[in-house]
Design a protein around this nucleic acid. Structure first.
Lengths: 351, 351
DNA sequence: TTGTAGGCGTTATCAC
DNA sequence: GTGATAACGCCTACAA
């Protein structure tokens, strides 16, 4: 065992400054309760001994840790990294510390991580995406721990959310493609039964089709269980690529595809190009998320922007407001999306 | 204030099971010290009341938190995200929790983050990249807190590192380009005076040039202060793009560029293409890192692979070994790199 | 304005 | 094998 260096404690300061322990505590916390003269003495002692209050002891005493847990499914996904970034920034600003947990979309892993965190060392929790999990929602409700979910809608319970309008976003994507003359619009998605978010997007797609009097063609939609495989880390691109290689060989292509993530769009585009199908000349594609590489692939990707960083910022602010007992007017915050036009969609003339 | 739910404590269990507090503690920790019968009683009580030991109290008592801090400069950078991922995986396996801090390459921010963490609530620290900072090294040394740096070499002090051989990696990149017939090799990098790592790469570049009897042409190297601007989040691509737009207008291009990161390479390629300069037909480019998008840009990027996840895994294992007092044979671990050939480099015939 | 003392939930050291 | 009790470092009544 590496010998733990005995840190100077409030006691040492008291001795050094020749005051009572509580006096030291007062100057640290309630700055104005102590006479100027004693205060100075204490401060000097603190400085001299390089004293720093002990987080752990303080937490034990106050039952607050100023620590908030963040559960994500994959920190190396640019979409979530961007959200975490937003969280991190305001957490720091508001004096909180971030504890990170990755689940890799494994529900049992998620449960265990949340359990560890909830277990009294966290003031609040932010959970980003991931499959629906009723068990966890129940737990959170009974434990009464402050939680906000980002990009994961909980409909049945009164739990705080920050979201986008997934259905509407997709509907608008269809509208957009329609307005560009597309009449055969494909769709690539994760399985829709595991996550409400994903299901809502699909519903938006269907709705958009209907609204524009487009026939729904199941041939054009690719929804595959492989996407749900938790072993495949960040491999959505590769999965899509493989799926499309297959698709191209056996089926007729629509004139455009909508995907539920930019990463999937990347895989799609690559597969298309590898088969000498030009994007956007032969088939258009619109992604989802607007991650920072969209400008740098070719063609630059037209996509639905999610306000990632803002989702993080909004989420943590909401959470901290709850923790700090502020009045919350709205526990379900919906942020706007928009279509970012780049060059992966071509307008086609209507025959 | 949301009323904190009083959690069941070891005391409650003791009462419920009609044994002493210490007995409960024994069954939790030293499983074999207690008679089978009492053990069962206790376990039953624990189960009944849903008791979970309190991390904070335990930490206060044992002076260990099973928490390790990870300081990164930008969590949304795919290179660091991948390292963090490796860290996260083994941390979980070995029973530790990760606390994340982002510095955005701001040294004073880094100092403050490290200070907060060192401040008694962390068993050890991993620091990923970032500019050299003598002050921090001193601090770490005096505090005697277990630390390992990843991708950031500390030469003057006896501090644990996991690294690649930056110089050699670059040298090999030059060799590679040379072997493909290139004689004019440009170089794009962060300022070399802020980070040893970056400087070493530059030295490797120079060395590679010399070794192959290539003249060093300062016209071909782009090293710009803009890269050091901490305000520009994940904007290396954009910075490079702008820099190159300028470069292309005013200077003669080499036949190939080496960059110190794939992200920079992306910006470079885009600028080239925007100016109708074909990659790799007119100029070749080799990146650095091998991030997961390299296969999906066009042309797919030839690059120097860093074993990112393995760097994370190695780093955390080293750290935990130190924390747990294991014998360390080597505090400076160098991991191998390799060139990944894709399609951004063209072999040119030698006139 | 300052000092005393109890307790947050554990673990560890003693006795018994 | 089990039970009492003192710490870990801090905060906060309450008393002085």
């Amino acid at each position: 065992m590496p010998k733990k260096f005995k840190n100077t404690s409030i006691k040492d300061i008291a001795k050094e400054a020749r005051v009572a322990i509580s006096t030291v505590s007062y100057v640290i916390n309630k700055k104005d309760l102590v006479a100027e003269k004693t205060k100075k003495k204490v401060l000097k002692a603190i400085d001299k001994l390089g004293y720093k209050p002990n987080f752990i002891a303080r937490s034990l005493r106050t039952q607050k840790t100023s620590t908030i847990g963040v559960i994500v499914y994959d920190i190396s996904n640019p979409f979530v990294a961007q959200i975490v970034r937003g969280i991190q920034e305001v957490a720091k600003m508001r004096g909180y510390i971030i504890v990170l947990g990755c689940t890799f979309n494994d529900s049992s892993e998620e449960e265990s991580q949340i359990n560890v965190m909830i277990n009294q060392f966290i003031d609040g929790l932010i959970i980003i995406s991931g499959p629906d999990n009723e068990k966890i929602y129940k737990k959170i409700l009974t434990k009464k721990i402050p939680v906000v979910f980002i990009d994961r809608e909980i409909v049945k319970h009164d739990i705080a959310n920050v979201l986008i309008n997934n259905s509407l976003a997709m509907e608008k994507a269809v509208d957009y493609l329609f307005s560009m003359g597309h009449r055969e619009i494909g769709y690539i998605s994760y399985p829709i039964d595991k996550q409400i978010t994903v299901r809502q997007r699909y519903e938006g797609y269907i709705k958009g089709l209907k609204k524009n009097n487009l026939a729904f063609n199941p041939e054009y939609v690719i929804i595959d269980e492989k996407f749900a495989d938790k072993e495949l880390e960040g491999k959505d691109m590769d999965i899509t690529f493989d799926l499309m290689q297959q698709f191209i060989k056996t089926k007729k292509l629509p004139t455009a595809f909508i995907t539920i993530s930019d990463i999937i769009a990347y895989g799609l585009i690559k597969a298309l190009q590898e088969n000498n199908i030009k994007v956007p000349e032969s088939v258009s594609v619109v992604g989802f998320d607007n991650i920072m590489f969209d400008d740098y692939i070719s063609p630059p990707l037209t996509t639905v922007r999610q306000p990632k960083k803002m989702m993080g910022i909004t989420g943590i602010n909401l959470l901290l407001d709850i923790i700090e007992g502020k009045e919350i007017e709205n526990k379900r915050i919906v942020l706007p999306t928009e279509i970012i036009e780049r060059n992966s969609v071509k307008s086609i003339s209507i025959a």
